[in-house]
């Protein structure tokens, strides 16, 4: 269309481009370069979409097979024995929640205090700490379990939710440290200068300016760590083990007893030859994924609230 206009306007005027062959400026798939380009575009698009197929498959299967079995009863009753009908994973939900909560108690203060130090210093110690935290992020989760087994299970003489929580907190710690440090460093240095210029001590600067300003970012990191910890199985198999009973018995919290968790329940039930258990495993998987997603979404919502630089 555009070319028509041009031609009309140029009517009567000598065409300055006469003799120039414009055809090689047009985009044509017949040219090998263009063709290869288009093919590669298609290929990456296809690969990316293909990478998402498993995600959809997992989600669909969870909703279909897990949703079928999900009920109030499943959420509130104890795991069934072999060949027993009904049952649920109420104690596993409690166990996962309690262990993650205890792990938060261990790792969050630890992580934030470390992050405060890291954000303030650029010395060798800080560098080594940062390196250690990075190493811990790549640390196989099962080794956290091995560590908790050696440090807690062997020392206290039995499997316990405490051991599980220790293992989980080792896994949460690096995420909390690194994201909190980032969040604190993101606080504009002008604000820090303002506080120091008014005669704030370091502690006052941290408590009254840095942490309040950085708190959305820090919480984002905590939520990410929670999401990761809640789904971890390997470190729990031989620290918290499993239990068919409630964590809360006779009015007491049995923190030093073996404890059920959603992840270990899924692992155990997935390998069982009983239909009821397999169905429960899917339902528990749905609940677990929902919990993890909630933690993730909460983290993202918080990070959206972070102040701009």
């Amino acid at each position: 269309m555009a070319t028509n206009v041009v031609e009309r306007n140029l009517a009567g005027v000598e065409d300055p481009f006469a003799g120039v062959d414009f055809s090689h400026l047009e985009r044509s798939l017949r040219r090998p370069r263009t063709l290869i380009d288009a093919l590669l575009n298609l290929a990456t698009a296809a690969l990316t979409m293909l990478a998402l197929v498993p995600l959809f498959s997992v989600v669909v299967m969870l909703l279909w097979r897990g949703g079928k079995r999900l009920s109030i009863a499943a959420l509130t009753s104890l795991p069934p024995g072999p060949l027993e009908a009904g049952g649920g994973f109420g104690n596993a939900i409690v166990g996962t929640t309690v262990m993650v909560a205890v792990a938060i108690l261990f790792s969050v203060p630890f992580g934030i205090l470390t992050a405060v130090y890291l954000a303030q210093s650029n010395n060798k110690v800080a560098e080594v700490v940062r390196f250690c935290a990075k190493l811990l992020t790549g640390f196989p989760s099962i080794l956290a379990g091995v560590f908790a087994y050696g440090a807690v299970v062997l020392a206290t003489g039995g499997f316990s939710s405490l051991a599980g929580a220790v293992a989980l907190s080792v896994l949460m710690l690096p995420t909390v440290i690194l994201t909190s440090e980032d969040a604190i460093r993101m606080v504009p240095s002008r604000m820090k200068e303002a506080a120091i210029g008014m005669g704030a001590t370091t502690a006052q600067t941290v408590w009254m300016v840095l942490l309040p300003t950085a708190i959305p970012g820090i919480l984002t990191g905590v939520m990410l760590a929670v999401a990761r910890a809640a789904g971890e199985t390997a470190p729990l198999i031989f620290t918290a083990l499993f239990s068919n009973y409630w964590l809360w018995q006779h009015g007491q919290m049995k923190l030093m007893q073996p404890t059920a968790s959603l992840a270990v329940l899924i692992y155990n039930f997935a390998g069982m030859p009983f239909k009821n258990q397999v169905e429960l495993a899917w339902a528990a998987a749905l609940v677990l994924v929902l919990m993890v997603l909630c933690a993730n979404l909460a983290g993202q919502a918080l990070s959206a609230r972070q102040v701009q630089r």
């Binding site: 002008r190 210029g197 008014m198 300003t213």
Partner: peptide, 17 residues
């Protein structure tokens, strides 16, 4: 202590969030 008695206003406005 010095900075409590000798305050400072900076070139760029820097209110807290």
């Amino acid at each position: 202590a010095v900075r409590r008695f000798i305050g400072m206003v900076f070139q760029q406005p820097n209110p807290f969030a």
